[in-house]
């Protein structure tokens, strides 16, 4: 464990906590893409298949449980909670995310480290996480009004993956057998790049102390 990875995990945790708090406190999920949340739940399911069979550390197991629990509770709020579900603007959340799932699954079947069920599912989760934010970014562009909690949510998510890239550089430089993780790095780089334009507008709006507006 290195500081980049730990900080990245904390940013990731913060992003889901911010989102859960917003939904729980305001009893509203306006501006949140349900499709992105569904993709993230799928990412965690496919990546943490070994949660009960493999043990790496208490931290690792606890964080996996926290991420799975938060993903499912966000889905429960947005789909089943009698008040919150009314605030989900379905007609703004139009990204056809099933194509993302299909594309990532095909790619995982073609490009992976080992052709085993667990490894292909893990690879699928890495690809899917890279694009999972797309429905949310599209929805932000469309709804245009970004409340600062949603902005923070996306900002923390982008920071988490950016820190993970520093972690990969660090591990590449310090660990011997870490050189075959190029697949993760490419996917992680694409994922972070997707946030680039959002970061630009987020920092600009923060600096000018104005409402965050994404260009149409």
């Amino acid at each position: 464990m290195n500081i980049f990875r730990f900080a990245g995990d904390m940013m990731h945790l913060l992003s889901v906590v911010v989102l859960l708090l917003k939904i729980h406190k305001m009893k509203s999920c306006a501006g949140i893409s349900l499709k992105t949340q569904e993709l993230y739940a799928l990412v965690f399911i496919c990546r943490y298949l070994d949660i009960f069979t493999g043990f790496i550390s208490l931290y690792n197991t606890i964080m996996k449980i926290v991420f799975l629990a938060s993903a499912f509770s966000i889905l429960w709020y947005m789909r089943s909670h009698k008040v919150v579900r009314q605030t989900y603007d379905k007609d703004q959340d139009t990204f056809r995310h099933y194509f993302l799932i299909l594309a990532c699954m095909v790619l995982a079947l073609l490009v992976h480290h080992k052709f085993t069920f667990r490894e292909v599912m893990w690879t699928f989760s890495i690809y899917l996480e890279a694009v999972a934010i797309l429905p949310q970014l599209v929805m932000l562009q469309r709804t245009r009004n970004i409340d600062n909690l949603t902005g923070n949510y996306v900002f923390f998510l982008g920071t988490y993956r950016g820190l993970y890239m520093l972690n990969w550089v660090y591990r590449y430089l310090t660990e011997v057998h870490y050189h075959h993780r190029w697949l993760t790095w490419i996917s992680g780089f694409i994922q972070t790049a997707l946030y680039a334009d959002f970061f630009y507008y987020y920092v600009k709006s923060w600096r000018n102390n104005e409402k965050l507006q994404l260009p149409a």
């Binding site: 995990d9 790496i56 991420f67 480290h113 080992k114 972690n167």
Partner: peptide, 10 residues
């Protein structure tokens, strides 16, 4: 530390 093939990252 996980083996080369284990995934020890979240």
């Amino acid at each position: 530390k996980s083996s080369g093939h284990g995934h020890d990252e979240l």
